[in-house]
Design a protein around this nucleic acid. Structure first.
Lengths: 213, 213
DNA sequence: CCTACCGATCGGTAGG
DNA sequence: CCTACCGATCGGTAGG
């Protein structure tokens, strides 16, 4: 305010643009240093603003990475829906299976988003928190796919949420192990998580199919 | 050295005892603050020594939590073997399934150990690292159980490591989701991870059983 | 949204 | 294994 003459200079992050710039910077940080390297100051630094500037958008560092995680859940949901829409002619069972592969695909192609979503402490917000709502919306995509597969007679009956949890656990486990490099450490040098995901889809098909057992 | 008169006072962590005291302190820290709260100084503080004392045992904070993780892998392996030995009369298939439940059981009863093992960056050591050897030994327990189940005709043939990975992914996914409170966040308030683990064992049994498909 | 400040914590070194 | 130090980083506040 003191020197209004400076008013004409370029201000890269006017208005609401800083928020997005901070989210972008956060992903960059997570990719380079991991979630533990994320701080308000570092994000501000990369966004080219002073370290107090983020305060108006994110009161604490936790708020920042919750926002990153929330955005990640929205992207995950969009990715899953896009994969479903890609092959609309597929059977309900194939659609269900493709969701699992798409989940792993998202994790390995966007490890920063994936790490943000499942960093310890992030999944501990009240249910009303936007982050939890975004997470719930993503999970709902899976539950609905299970119900369609059940309606088509491809998957055994029973609580759709419980069955969805089985599929989620399987693909989440694989995704986590892949992103944390546990797969290569255990000698899965073929290391193609997507191929493994497709393989595990068969386990789901057999394990969840209807009929006597 | 200056005041030898002090030599008679109690020195709680002589010789090799400091190392164990630091490991104990680390678990305490992880339980309270998470892995991100782990530092050489905080561990030293809780062990009652100066902040330079840990240096002789652990050069860096990474070395410290790698040691915690290595110890955790040994405990996990011992836990799995103990559960196997508990019911030696069980079929090879039941033994295999009980491993999955035991894995989740370990995770939820020792979340600090579990978090240490799978903290991002921990699973990134060279194969020669003791941590990786301990991790490999734990995974081997599962692979061997798969092979026994295959030999008994309870599980379909094929690379035992790939099949073990399926079981691992499934139970690891459930364990991670439980420990990170994702289960309760998704409305699994029944929230009994062990019951869910037993349920998912059925998915494994069906998905991995031999025969035409 | 910025420039000073502050107190706290961390890893690291010197020297004993 | 300890007591001083150090430089760096972080979150936070004052004041504009």
């Amino acid at each position: 305010m003191a020197r209004r003459a400076k008013r004409g200079r370029k201000r890269p992050y006017h208005h609401g643009r800083l928020r997005q710039a901070l989210l972008d910077a956060s992903l960059e940080i997570i990719a380079e240093l991991g979630v533990s390297g994320l701080s308000l100051r570092e994000a501000a630094r990369r966004a080219g603003v002073s370290h107090t500037a983020p305060k108006r958008h994110f009161a604490t560092a936790t708020d920042l990475y919750c926002a990153v995680a929330e955005d990640a859940y929205r992207r995950l949901r969009a990715h899953l829906l896009a994969r479903l829409a890609e092959r609309p002619a597929a059977t309900a069972l194939e659609a269900f299976g493709s969701l699992g592969v798409a989940y792993v695909e998202f994790a390995v192609t966007h490890p920063e988003h994936f790490r943000a979503m499942f960093h310890p402490g992030v999944g501990d917000r009240p249910a009303s928190h936007p982050l939890e709502e975004a997470a719930g919306a993503a999970f709902a995509v899976l539950v609905e796919a299970v119900e369609r597969a059940q309606a088509a007679g491809d998957v055994r009956s029973g609580p759709s949420k419980d069955i969805a949890l089985g599929a989620w656990s399987l693909m989440h486990g694989l995704a986590v192990l892949a992103v944390d490099r546990q797969l290569v450490a255990r000698g899965f040098t073929s290391g193609e998580p997507l191929a493994l995901a497709r393989q595990l889809t068969q386990l789901l098909y057999l394990g969840l199919r209807p009929g006597p057992s």
